[in-house]
Amino acid sequence: MQTKKKANFNTWLMQIFLGCNAVIMLYPIFMMAISGFKTNSEIFGKPFSLPSSLNFDNFLVIWNTTDVPRYLLNSTIVTGLSVVLLLTMGTMAAYALARYKFRGNIMIYLFFLSGLMLPLRLAIIPLFIQLKYLGLIDSLLGLICIYTAMSLPATVFILTGFLKTLPSELEDSARMDGASEARIMVQIMLPLISPALVIAGIYTAVPIWNDFFFPLIFIQSPEWKTLAQGLTSFFGEYSINYGVLYAGLTLAALPVVTIFIIQSNRFIAGMTAGAIK
């Protein structure tokens, strides 16, 4: 009886702790979202109350008069193309490393792995000169190249791990069936690692979407700015219109949050993929 009571008490304590934590996590995001629907005077006067009406003015201002939609488009292009390139190249390298024995296999694998440990930010100066030389400064293509190269090691690492788990008898069987090496890869093996491709895709897409550092240095014209970077100039312009600022943040957060809520399992698996052996 005594221990049961104690266990109950512990459960309650745990729930209170986790509940408080959940509130601390959610409330700021909630406040950010509802403040986007408020006018300046509401934000100052009644900061914690719900907006008096569901008023989309702030969002309309952003949509019609700022470059934020443009930033959104640029971020989508950069993230989309980078991830497509990453998954293509990552799969190619990982497939060769995981499914074929050849001299130098381990060396090449280590080469990719060592890329995991190089913080590319610190090479920003040579990168800047290099991109300038290639005419890739102030261009989305430049960002795509950097992101692809930067995330390639992690992608290769994740996909090699998955590809190694596939039984070699499947390959043999397809070989007996007369399929070429390319066909075995595309028709037999790749469909079997589609979950891994999703994981690797999320793992790389989220940081690319959120990145702020590389565009800060490589992109100058407003028309090529990405969302995270564009927000800084947007904050400069609207520094006194709080409602619009909150609405901008909400709008910027919306795409990732929406996908996260639909696919939370895959997101969690994806983003922790590099850290879990």
Partner: peptide, 20 residues
């Protein structure tokens, strides 16, 4: 000759059926 040109078929231990 490559495997598929030999007129040979093989049944594997794990069956190696294509899961998808």
């Amino acid at each position: 000759l490559p495997p598929s040109k030999r007129g040979i078929a093989m049944v594997f231990q794990s069956y190696a059926l294509y899961p998808h």
